[in-house]
Simulated assay, not measured.
Amino acid sequence: MRIEVLFPEYCSLFGDLFNVKYLQACLPGAERVDVSLREEPELSGGGLVYMGPMSERTQEKVIKKLMPYKKRIGELIDSGTAFLLTGNALEVLGSHIIREDGSRLEGLGLLPVYAKQDIMHRHNSVFLGEWNGAEVTGFKSQFTMAWPTEGAKGLFTVKKGVGLNKKCPYEGLRVNNLFATYLQGPVLPLNPCFARGLLEAMGAHGAELAFEGAAQEAYKARVADFYSKVR
């Protein structure tokens, strides 16, 4: 089992690499491959490809780096390779990003979504949603909102909080075994149900969740707390 982490020196603004560390705890035999922005991605298929949130300036560099691999990434998505994109990483694979001055930054065009920047107004919120009948909690801090286009399939149904944009009924996107969400930080250890689903998508059938007892107790307490605080 291989976990390929794209550009961890830049794409982990909110401690998102703890998602990878948690997966390593669940899969102690997994091979972790960190790919620097100065290196070429392997994209060998199987296991998981992970990318976390980055600055707006880094987005431009990452898009430029990955554009020659657009066809390969599309092939992996179509063939069912698992991807996890957190924070604004999903925008890299989207159609385009509309900058605040009205100019466009073209993305890889592999996800049915585009984003709009609003650099003067950072959106911060907590989120409560549903995935496969279970609640999902998380945090959002972003300068963009996203608009899904034809054929988009949401990842989490919004129960409380904001989806891809303030009027969208769902948060994130799913294409085959690609999971993309604006939620950031340690999403997987905070949501055991989602972590288990990702492990299944990776082909790690029957893998045990690390620290499952403690994770489940903390999850239940957090869901109850979110219900009391999120409007």
Rank of each mutant, 00 (worst) to 15 (best):
T149I: 07
L27K: 03
L85S: 08
E200C: 04
T181D: 04
P68G: 08
Y22D: 06
A195V: 06
P41S: 05
P53R: 09
L43F: 05
G138V: 06
E4Q: 07
Y69H: 10
V223E: 12
W147Q: 10
G47P: 11
L23Y: 11
L209N: 11
T86V: 03
L66W: 00
L27R: 03
Q216T: 14
L199Q: 01
M145C: 07
D225S: 05
V5K: 00
M1N: 13
F179L: 07
V20N: 01
L128N: 04
V49N: 01
R72K: 08
N132A: 15
K21S: 12
F83I: 07
R222G: 06
L90V: 11
G197S: 10
E171Q: 12
K116A: 13
A152P: 03
V62E: 00
L85R: 04
V49R: 03
E31K: 07
F211W: 13
S95W: 07
D34H: 01
H205C: 14
V62C: 01
I119W: 08
A221Q: 12
G163L: 01
L17D: 09
C26I: 03
F7T: 00
L37M: 07
R2K: 15
F18N: 12
E106L: 08
G163E: 02
M54D: 06
I77E: 13
P148N: 08
K159G: 06
M202D: 07
E91L: 14
P192S: 07
P41Q: 09
I63C: 04
K64W: 02
G45M: 03
S12A: 14
M202V: 05
G133F: 03
I98S: 15
L23P: 00
E40G: 00
Q117N: 09
G185T: 06
K116G: 13
H205S: 15
